[in-house]
Amino acid sequence: MAYDVPAHFPLPIYERELAQATSAKIDLGRALFYDPILSADSTISCASCHSPYNSFAHTDHEVSHGIHDSIGTRNAPALFNLAWQPLLMWDGASNHLDMQALAPITHPGEMAESIKHLMVKLKRSTIYTALFKKAYGIDTITSQKMLQALTQFQLSLISDQAKYDKVKQGNDTFTIQEQAGYSLFQAKCNACHTEPLFSNYAFRNNGLSPDTANYDLGRYRVTKQTQDSFLFKVPTLRNLSYTYPYMHDGRFRRLNQVLNHYTAIDNQNVHISHELSSGVKLTSNQKADLIAFLLTLNDKSFILNQDNKFPRSILLPTKENQH
């Protein structure tokens, strides 16, 4: 199951976990990811807000909705290349992928389930008893193995087959416009959206005005340090065509709006991160070039990968047998 890190990628943080991956662990994690059993009333699964067709984000939703149509406060981030992310969530509240799942499962507005009760439900299930046995050789299901299996599935979501990757590997070439966009990208965006993952995974203030609905303080919520107010994690720019709307509150629906935001930044704003302190200047032609380059970061094979989708044969074995 070993994953071959492409030559142009750095070594993953979750190298040990990737080395421990087996198809049985990933299958178990995949079943859990798509199963609404994780929510209190069996209506919401991880995939409800992290859809494989949207690169595991929630297209068309500024913020996501959870149990009983509760409205959340942040845009569901796309899930891929998580093996390289030091901290999870927009504000970095989770320090490990294993522990991240506890947040949506127990959040009263997301899945509203207790870990204790979830364990009871999983232990009652013959499907899960067999899946845990196969994956970890255990007869008694534990929360540790449940969380580790979810991690294994999420770590397996690797997007490294975009046109950009093919160019880097010498198997494709950029068009003139894409190349012009790439040069602009390197000059103006790469400091934060660092290639090849297209994020430095740091927390930054990109000049957005505070959202009026939630007045979200971002990273401050975790660190309680005033200098961290309104800082959010730099998101990756891979798969942008599948993950709109953009920003932590999903305020922009189109890439044009995002670029217009950057060119209109008030560089007198003292809170803005230093990379943007002298502003971003782009002509309309340059914006078009930059967007052409950004589209080379779309990885269609990742979106179409059947191995990442709803595991019908695992979760609905009887139906599968009938076909």
């Binding site: 320090n95 522990m99 506890l102 947040a103 959040h107 204790k116 540790q144 193995k145 580790q148 991690t151």
Partner: peptide
């Protein structure tokens, strides 16, 4: 120990001694 991911036994989150809204 905090940075090690999911643990079992006395450190199992079912013991209600783990925050869920942030790691810790």
């Amino acid at each position: 120990t905090h940075a090690r991911g999911a643990m079992e036994g006395d450190l199992d989150p079912v013991n209600d001694m783990y925050w869920t809204w942030q790691s810790g």
